[in-house]
Write a protein that binds this DNA or RNA. Structure first.
Length: 272
DNA sequence: CCTGAAACCTGTCTGC
DNA sequence: TGCAGACAGGTTTCAG
């Protein structure tokens, strides 16, 4: 599922083209079509949105947490892929695919398509992106995310560490896969109360989170089942979706439990 | 205030 | 084989 590494990979391909399609930068929007009313978040109708953006160009593409940010001369398009969203830039000819929810048509015969099987994804068109992004926590790959920062922010937290890692208002961008993989790498049990982590464990966890995310980005993120194509990190999962398989470190069978309503994989020997 | 659980969705897997 | 039900997952919203 799209988490920080997958979103980063998609943003990079939107920006520079390659692998999954062409660059969207400098292309001019000629119209916008929306096929699912809940997908577009905009003060007005889809037709008004299309009219508003007609003639605008995509000037930049970047990422904040799991959000994709596209800037035009006058507005921001914010996209959250949630569970099953995907984007592709392609020639604006031929049939659309099942589950295509929203299309930006370009004046040069290309199009940017938002596909989303489960309809959880959202596309915001706004002139005030901070209203959507307010409340997001620190970027785990930023310079500010230090061992000291993590130690200080876990201090008063009585919730279990796995839930903390998934809390976007604290650390923004980690999802279920990378929470499990990071905790395994750090040797920390997912149900440990966050405030019980020692300073040394906080530093280890901080390093494991960065290492795991950076490695996943190098692999273009994770792909599995029918969701999200092009990544390779799923071949390097050490605990995620490996219930019953031997721990790559000690050989103990990986266990799966539920923590904060989320499936959670860990090694009962390596993660105390 | 904080925590937990339901709701939102639909394709796929599991069990009877 | 067929079908009902469980499950997955990120976030918001509601309940306790």
């Amino acid at each position: 599922m799209p988490e920080l590494p997958e979103v980063e990979t998609i943003v990079r391909s939107l920006r520079s083209g390659g692998m999954t399609g062409d660059s969207i930068l400098t292309r001019q929007i000629s119209s916008v079509e929306c096929f699912n009313s809940k997908t577009l978040v905009f003060e007005g109708s889809a037709e008004q949105c299309s009219e508003l953006l007609r003639g605008s160009h995509f000037l930049s593409a970047d990422r904040r947490a799991k959000y994709i940010r596209l800037r035009t001369e006058s507005h921001w398009i914010l996209i959250h892929l949630r569970m099953s969203g995907d984007l592709r830039c392609e020639a604006d000819s031929g049939e659309l695919l099942p589950h295509d929810r929203l299309v930006f048509h370009f004046s040069d015969g290309m199009r940017l398509v938002f596909n989303d099987v489960r309809k959880f994804g959202r596309v915001w068109v706004t002139d005030d992106p901070e209203a959507v992004l307010a409340g997001l926590g620190i970027e785990p790959l930023s310079e500010d995310f230090t061992a000291e920062w993590l130690t200080a922010h876990l201090a008063g937290q009585h919730r279990v560490i796995k839930s903390i890692l998934l809390d976007q208002s604290l650390i923004a961008g980690i999802g279920n896969i990378y929470a499990d993989e990071s905790l395994f790498d750090a040797g920390i049990h997912p149900k440990r109360p966050a405030c019980s982590l020692t300073e040394a464990e906080c530093e280890k966890l901080r390093n494991s989170i960065r290492k795991t995310l950076e490695h996943a980005i190098e692999q273009n993120g994770s792909s599995f089942d029918w969701a999200y194509k092009g990544g390779h990190f799923q071949n390097e999962f050490r605990v995620y979706q490996r219930k019953g398989e031997p721990c790559p470190v000690c050989g103990t069978p990986i266990e799966k439990i539920v923590v904060g309503q989320r499936g959670t994989h860990f090694c009962p020997h390596c993660q105390k």
